[in-house]
Design a protein around this nucleic acid. Structure first.
Lengths: 148, 148
DNA sequence: CTAAATGCAAAATTTTTGCAGTCCC
DNA sequence: GGGACTGCAAAAATTTTGCATTTAG
């Protein structure tokens, strides 16, 4: 618990610095949107964040959530997760990791795979341009959904 | 050229069989939508296919394109490509392959990586559930965009 | 013939924008 | 104080749906 609190606190401190570095103002809304996203494990959509934050910030508007997420993504402070759903999902986790997603419930879980991260890409990709990032997406049916 | 023609013809024959197997009627629109997608290299959106097809099929409607793509995806005859754009992109290529996408121009290019396809997934993923598919997405800046 | 598929128009969903007022630096 | 940010409302963009008509099997 304490450990978790510390982690969030550290994340928030790093976030504030990242905002300063990017020339972004540190507003109450931005702090809370980031805090909510950083604490979430479920790669939430703008709407999900909005609903959760509404309880704490009754005056928050949905378009601010959209605008904030877009701004933070531009600055590479958060990431827009690739899905084939209609709504965009986001995550605050910026260290290299990968995703497993369930075809049924749609839940996305993070995993790490250092072997892959270190593997050399095939020839034709190496010549394509400048590579910045590589990610694995595994899809299937999770245990809970399979048990039905 | 001849070879390419043959490939398309074969693809169309396989497509018709896949429709029969899935109990889908083989309509003019379906054939043309699939033909266009199978011949495209750029992972087009519904709107892009609609615009291209409009020349050949002036009466085609956009919602038919949407409905057809959704149906074919359900039957695993085509795939909805994961991107972080607002519009959904599709591809007819169903053999295992991966994507490189340019952060600037947004172009998506296929590549193959059998070494990765054969690699064993990490422990924690193996226990997650039943894996059906794994894909790599590489991102960066392509050569053309870098030359600016 | 009959169920499925299409086209049209209208709605629903998701995201973006203009503008006036507010708040950080 | 000034420019960036927010909230509101309205619009734009993308996708889905209801229904009458047409078409494949």
């Amino acid at each position: 618990m304490l450990h978790h609190k510390d982690t969030i606190r550290k994340k928030m401190a790093r976030f504030e610095q990242a905002c300063r570095d990017a020339g972004l103002k540190i507003t109450h809304q931005r702090l809370e949107i980031y805090r909510e996203l950083a604490g979430a494990h479920d790669h939430p959509t703008a709407e999900m964040l909005y609903t959760r934050l509404r309880e704490r910030l009754p005056t928050l508007s949905l378009d601010t959530v959209y605008r904030t997420l877009a701004t933070l993504e531009e600055q590479h402070i958060i990431t827009r997760v690739q899905t084939d759903e209609s709504q965009a999902r986001y995550e605050a986790e910026m260290t290299p990791h990968h995703h497993v997603m369930c075809r049924k419930c749609g839940r996305i879980t993070d995993f790490h795979w250092t072997f892959f991260d270190a593997a050399r890409l095939p020839e034709d990709v190496a010549g394509w341009g400048t590579i910045e990032d590589r990610k694995v997406t595994v899809r299937g049916i999770c245990r809970q959904c399979a048990a039905e």
